[in-house]
Design a binder for these strands. Structure first.
Lengths: 237, 237
DNA sequence: CGTGGGTTTGAGTGGGCTCAAGCCCGGTGG
DNA sequence: CCACCGGGCTTGAGCCCACTCAAACCCACG
């Protein structure tokens, strides 16, 4: 009758139990309660989960795919705040701060997500101190990263920041066997992370290529000289 | 024998009970336990509470004064992340993320602070769900502000940011009866918030003065035209 | 008075932005 | 099958905001 239901359930279980999810700190009882509530749903590229300034009714747990989280500036330009991937939980900030969404989140690569209603998330935090501390750790780590990026934006040149972002993307999403960044972005998206104009990204990428630091194949970026990039990212011009 | 001890205790009580402190969410039992542990201490201008990269053994609750929280960039330039004042709690980020301090905190105006050991803070979070949620709210709000500032740094001009910062400082620290900013900063400190060179701040401040937006009396800044500043801060150069 | 930290002002430079044109490439319709 | 179209990418030219460097000033303090 429901041949795929068991599969879905086990998929969720996999997701929550995975060691890179905060939810693996839940008790097995809490976990099975949670499994009764949530259903994974697949979202296609370009779909929007929630809009900046909108009310937010819960958080999303990412089982697969990539989601782009960004703010829209005064002139309409996107500023990408982060990308979410497997194991991440998004939207929790607005739920816990009890504020409107401060970002928009859009699917970059087809994603499988579980929606977790705000009330459920808050109940879990209230009743499970370990889980609560882990959620707090998550928020605090994100805050530390944000502070770092504020400093970088204020003090580093565009070139330094671009090199840094490439390394950061390699860290988060990994490289394939040919050292190609697994996340694929348009030049404009790159510029919206770095906080610069699209043309500047293009010029700097080809400069990096000239200098043998990277190679470019369409949107694919190969990191050839990680040390060199590191050197550029920390330092002078 | 100890004529000032009761005073200190009641001072702490005042501090924790104050509605702008997270600690007023504690039960009276928890509160009295906490009062037994902590002692307020006065720090003079220029003293450092903790250093970026150092181990952090607890958080500080601010009873009075102003503390400057900053990161040090690659070339030694400060980037001011925030100022803490009465009711704020600082250092909790590193405690809860279980990381080394990501900022340095230095006293800007003589301050009275209570040190709260990490273990105590974590115990309170574990045992009091309401307090825990409030701490989480704090972190999440800070995160939202950080995201906003990332966007501003990436997209706004120095002039827009300076106007914004002046308004923000007025919001946080208030104005006296003559519309003078209650927080007093050097030009260099202002530049280390805005993320620019000291000379740029100086030039823009005198431009603002020319245009009747502000007045300057040494380090004192009078806000004459808040609407005008708002207009500048959101928009085009 | 001299010394030093902070402030101010000027001059010059360049990083990075804007504007504009052309290219590439995949998709769509005649 | 080709022509056309549109979105993204690339490159060039020019300009301006904001940085750097340097000199002078102010003033509190010893």
């Amino acid at each position: 009758m429901f041949p795929d239901e068991p599969t879905l359930q086990s998929e969720c279980f996999q997701c929550f139990k995975s060691s890179d999810s905060v939810f693996h700190y839940l008790s097995s009882e809490e976990l099975s309660d949670l499994l009764k509530i949530v259903t994974p749903k697949t979202y296609g590229k370009g779909e929007t989960l929630y809009h900046e300034g909108g009310k937010i009714t819960g958080a999303y747990c990412v089982f697969s795919g990539i989601i782009k989280i960004y703010k829209t500036g005064f002139d309409g330009k996107e500023q990408i705040i982060m990308f979410a991937k497997k194991g991440d939980i998004i939207g929790y900030r607005s739920v816990l701060a009890n504020e409107l969404a401060c970002t928009t989140s859009k699917i970059l690569e087809e994603s499988k997500l579980c929606f977790i209603p705000a009330s459920v998330l808050i109940r879990l935090i209230k009743q499970n101190a370990v889980f609560s501390l882990e959620m707090m750790k998550l928020a605090c780590k994100e805050l530390g990263e944000a502070n770092q990026y504020i400093t970088d934006l204020a003090q580093k040149s565009v070139k330094e920041r671009l090199a840094e972002i490439l390394l950061h993307l390699a860290d988060s999403f990994g490289l394939d066997d040919k050292n190609t960044l697994k996340i694929v972005l348009t030049r404009e998206e790159l510029s919206n992370i770095v906080g610069t104009a699209t043309e500047s990204v293009i010029r700097l990428l080809s400069e990096f290529k000239q200098n043998g630091l990277i190679d470019l194949q369409g949107r694919k970026i190969l990191l050839l000289d990680v040390q060199g990039l590191k050197h550029i990212s920390n330092a002078f011009s």
